[in-house]
């Protein structure tokens, strides 16, 4: 464990908490993409199956359980409890166009052709594009509540911090994982224009408005 990965995991945890608080406090999931939340649940489910047979550390196990519970909890809030506030007309990204290519690529490019390894690889590829429906929704509505932009900033920062973790591990621990690194860079790049808007607008107290 290193400071970059710890900060990354905490940023990730904070993002998930901010989202749950936003939905619970405002009793609304307006501006949030349920499609992205479904993709995140698929990512965590396919990646954390090793909870059953591999124990790394208490921290690792607890965080995996928290991420799984929070992602399914968010889906429950969005599609059941506060279903009336779900923006079904704008949340129209076809996630099958993200799931299928990730699955196909995982079958072709992986470290080993074994079920758990393929599922892990699939979850890495899917996570790199899982935010697209959310960014698509923000671009369609043209704006985002400031708490939603804080959520996105934390979520985007988590994988950006992981990139520093991978650089650190390459030099300090002599190992790397190219699949995770390439997918992590793609994932972070997708947030770039959002990061720009967040830093130039939201941090100045303005609302996040995308140029129409």
């Amino acid at each position: 464990m290193n400071i970059f990965r710890l900060l990354g995991d905490l940023s990730h945890l904070l993002a998930i908490i901010i989202l749950l608080v936003k939905i619970w406090k405002t009793r609304s999931c307006a501006g949030i993409s349920g499609k992205s939340q479904i993709l995140f649940a698929v990512v965590y489910t396919s990646r954390y199956l090793d909870l059953i047979n591999a124990f790394i550390s208490p921290y690792n196990t607890i965080m995996k359980i928290v991420f799984l519970a929070a992602s399914y909890g968010t889906i429950y809030l969005m599609y059941m409890k506060f279903k009336a506030t779900y923006d079904v007309n704008h949340d129209t990204f076809r996630i099958e166009f993200l799931i299928a290519p990730a699955a196909v690529l995982a079958l072709i490019v992986n470290h080993a052709f074994e079920p758990l390894e393929i599922l892990w690889t699939f979850s890495i590829y899917l996570e790199s594009v899982a935010i697209l429906p959310q960014l698509f929704l923000v671009s369609k509505t043209g704006e985002a509540e400031s708490i939603t932009s804080h959520y996105l900033f934390m979520l985007g920062s988590y994988r950006a911090l992981y990139i520093f973790n991978w650089i650190y591990r390459y030099y300090a621990e002599n190992h790397y994982d190219l699949i995770a690194i390439v997918a992590g860079i793609v994932q972070t790049v997708l947030y770039c224009d959002f990061f720009y808007l967040y830093i130039t607008k939201v941090l100045k107290g303005k609302k996040l408005q995308l140029p129409a």
Binding site: S57, R169, H175, Y176, A180
Partner: peptide
């Protein structure tokens, strides 16, 4: 540098 094998990251 060897390829990362154990999955110790979240």
């Amino acid at each position: 540098k060897e390829q990362n094998k154990e999955k110790d990251e979240l």
